[in-house]
Amino acid sequence: MSTPVPHSQYDPTSHLLLTPEDSDAQARVARLREIGIGNAPVPEFDEFARHLAHVTNAPFSMVNFIDESRQYFAGLYAAGRPGVELQPESQQPPVGRTMTRDQGYCPHVVVRRKALVLEDVCDYPRFAGNRVVDEIGIRSYMGAPLIDWKTGISLGTICVVDTDAHPWGRAGLETIKSMAQQLVDQLYVLEDRGRI
């Protein structure tokens, strides 16, 4: 017989909002250090993010690497705001190159190791309650994992977001998956040259 949970501790929707458990976090951090990904923007990744935004017709794009406690945007593009943070039109504080692991959808992509397309996050109860919806105004998301073929670890993501619902469609999914592979290839080239 199960013990009843006190009402004050019970939230029937809490399982929908949790950031997924990440068993690869320590191995990912070690590999990112080995590659040379740290706390500095990578100009090539900023340019990649700009191109990704253009190809997908999205106002915001990121190259995102994830450790045990946070996400770091080594590549960032914000339409009309080159070199600055994502900042909603509301008076909410801007989001810079880092976010906690419970903000956004990239941690789900990393753990699932699969692309994720949310044309309107409000259509998905699991994702609609995420902090980025209210804090930043994110309404749609599309991301794909960056799988390190040397270790099999998902190192991070590339993603695009919009403050409006965005019909990414099958073409968008194929594009983001293909471009994720291109970014992994670029990552290895930069690693080999010691340029990260």
Rank of each mutant, 00 (worst) to 15 (best):
Y77S: 06
E135F: 00
R195Q: 15
G137N: 04
L190E: 14
G143P: 01
V42H: 08
Y77P: 03
Q186H: 11
I136M: 03
Y141G: 06
L190T: 12
I176Q: 02
D24N: 08
D123Q: 11
H51A: 15
A58F: 13
H7D: 08
A128V: 03
G80V: 05
T100F: 02
T98N: 11
I136C: 02
E68C: 13
L18H: 04
A180C: 11
Q92M: 03
A144V: 01
P125N: 07
Y105I: 02
P6C: 03
R50L: 12
Q91F: 02
K114N: 05
V132M: 01
Y10G: 00
A115L: 04
F48V: 13
L76Y: 00
M62F: 15
G75Q: 05
G83W: 04
Y72A: 07
V184A: 05
L18W: 02
Q87Y: 00
G194M: 15
P59F: 04
E89K: 09
D22A: 06
W168L: 07
E44M: 12
L52S: 10
A128C: 11
G75F: 07
M1E: 14
G129V: 04
K177M: 14
V189P: 14
P145V: 08
V110N: 04
D120N: 15
D11S: 12
T157P: 07
R50V: 15
A144Q: 03
T157K: 01
S178W: 15
E119Q: 08
G80A: 02
G75R: 01
H54E: 15
V184S: 10
Q9Y: 11
A27Y: 01
C159M: 00
G156C: 10
F127R: 08
P107A: 05
K150Q: 14
V117E: 09
G96R: 03
R126G: 13
H51V: 15
V42Y: 09
V133M: 08
M62G: 15
L86Y: 09
L183C: 15
W149M: 07
Q9C: 03
P43R: 13
P12K: 06
P145R: 00
L155W: 02
E47Q: 13
T151D: 06
V111Y: 08
N39M: 13
